[in-house]
Design a protein around this nucleic acid. Sequence first.
DNA 1: TTCCATTACGCCGCT
DNA 2: CGTAATGGAA
Length: 753
Amino acid sequence: MPKEPDFIHDLNEQQRRAVRHGEGPLLIVAGAGSGKTRVLTYRIAYLIHQNMAAPNEILALTFTNKAAKEMQERIGQLIGEEAKRLWMGTFHSVFSKILRYEAEKIGFNSDYSIYDTEDSKNAIKQILRENNYDPKEIKPRILQRRISDAKNELINPDHYGEKFVHSTLDDITARIYKIYVERLKHNNAMDFDDLLIKPIELFNEHPDTLEKYQDRFKYIMIDEYQDTNHAQYKVTNMLASKYENLCVVGDDAQSIYSFRGADISNILDFKSDYEDAVEIPLEQNYRSTKAILKAADSIIKNNSKQLDKTLWTDNDMGDTITVLDNYDERDEANRVANYIQDLKMRKGYDYNDFAILYRTNYQSRVFEETFRRKGITYQLVGGLSFYQRKEIKDVLAYLTLLINPEDDTNLMRIINEPSRGIGQKSLSDLMNRARQTGQSLWRILENVEEADVYKPAENSVKDFVRMINSLKQQLANGRSLVEVTKQLLDESGYMKSLVEENSPKSMTRRENILELQNAISYFEKNNDNATLSSFLQEISLITDTDKYDEEKPAVTMMTVHAAKGLEFPVVFIVGLEEELFPVGSRNNEDVNIEEERRLFYVAITRAEQELFFSHCRSRYKYGEEQRKTRSRFLDEVSSDVVRTETGSSINQDKNRFSGKKNSSPNNGDTKVEYDWKKPLYDKNNRSSHTQIHYDNPDEDPFQVGAKVIHNVFGQGKIISRSGQGERTKVVVFFKERGRKTLMLRAAKMQVVG
DNA sequence: TTCCATTACGCCGCT
DNA sequence: CGTAATGGAA
């Protein structure tokens, strides 16, 4: 065996043990900021250096593509060029590559489409319509959720019915699930879940293929193991079962993805799954001050089950955590902005040293507005991602059609986009014919004259088919992807219709399309055998955090989920209010409070030097002002590391949430009925939610609180109003029909009493 | 068939 | 408040 590499001495004792561990299962329980990425990186480099494995015999599964790329670069610095041959990436991207090689074995074509949430929702909606269900009553979103959960638990459509006590919804789900799976296969398409479960099917049906990959991946490493779901567990378990050289790294305290099926017991049970597993804890934190770590610890102690470990640090005590008590979200954004500018000036921080972390994406809006006004540069990570935008999805749907004509869902998306006279009626005629004959929609279009549809539509279809075929021809002739895309934008009339619209919105869309073209040509330049298929596959799996640029001189704004694995010198955790962080329950489902607490723990441990907690006394929701109570987490945090802005200790009521549950259906959110306190921000900047003025308020009886009777909806009460004059809208809560929004000038309704 | 106005509804997180 | 979906008129 070669002499140990010098880099082994860059590590502490526990880290070194993990890196040196050779064959056999290994569990690394890595506390926040304990250098786990470093351990993974070094361990891979070490295995190669010691000739225990060739680079292409190592599979490393990370949580983001960016993490994989960075790790690969680091390993490259340690061992050189051959690091390129490592198999690294997210579960989804690695297995989608494997599926591309093996697609035929499970009845797919290697140019299969990848459906995102929106695509599969569209497919489900279409199936509902075809089976005479009303998508308004049976919500595609709900079904998709159930189907996705079933897939991740590896329950196939045939078994779905058995597993549950029968309710109507269970029966419908079972039925739609079955059709959905068939439809995706028919469309040569896979959804995100399929990328994980199809490999399992493949390996079950083809033991020889399984063995091929078992032999290829002699060593397997999985990062963020606490956030793997059952399917991910299963597929890696299969791959590792021959050599059992499986190394998993994780922290049960940071498990925050149960909503997509992540199963914390994967990490908790690792030692019973692999009896000779070695467990190594990484307990020294290199990231945060003592104060920050103490805050984190005091929070997580409130959770019940945890793997045994004690996080400690050699770092300084650091400053106490400041709690910002704000009037509302504008006040909050202003105050945070002021602190950023102040810290930047006084302590020499740069903009990219700051992060603003929130529970929900919509909270970014106020911060964006405020920061733009104050000239603070920021980068927003997440929200509606670039590749989810309508115009981008449209162009990609066109491109997908060129290589996967079986894909009815993508075809449906763009066949009349921009409108070319193929309307609802003609489309459903064509679709019905496709279903009856078992052919793809594209096949029907190619022979549209046999379909007997409305003549003008038939001609449009012929033009459409001609256009797509000519683009396919271009592609086959080896023209570059950018060229073909340009031609497509031109010939489809897509660009033209955007130009004609000439609105601010259409301008942005044109810019986005331009950016997509740049992305395509960048891809072509940087990949030797860039195909349309590989491009589409890659971009459909790009994540929000993949685009986060730590060098960019800008304040980062993102959700706590997106911040996982990242670190910042100064962190603001905002919106620390009940029903927001921890989140409020949705349609009476229980909130997993322990997971919310872990999420808060993740947020705290992103901070290196300084940390701020921020909450608002009131907040706008659906255009209505809500009173907010401070998050219970602020009562749980160790009182000696938090201070108010004036430096006094915060009033904590540790018993506030213990014992009895609040029985109010709307706990935490109450409507504001009076001005609570003057806002601290500049009144001149107060642009929205001002009072509406009427010329003759006395003549307008439709005020908030008024009881009304409506011709159709019956009795109700006005709970809010918005807009002015002709555009005045009111929200009315009707006794029998619930909440409705009505145009005052059109509503057939009178004030009573 | 298309376009525009009105109404519904969400705001939990992500591949 | 914002956007998506729907439904009626040109």
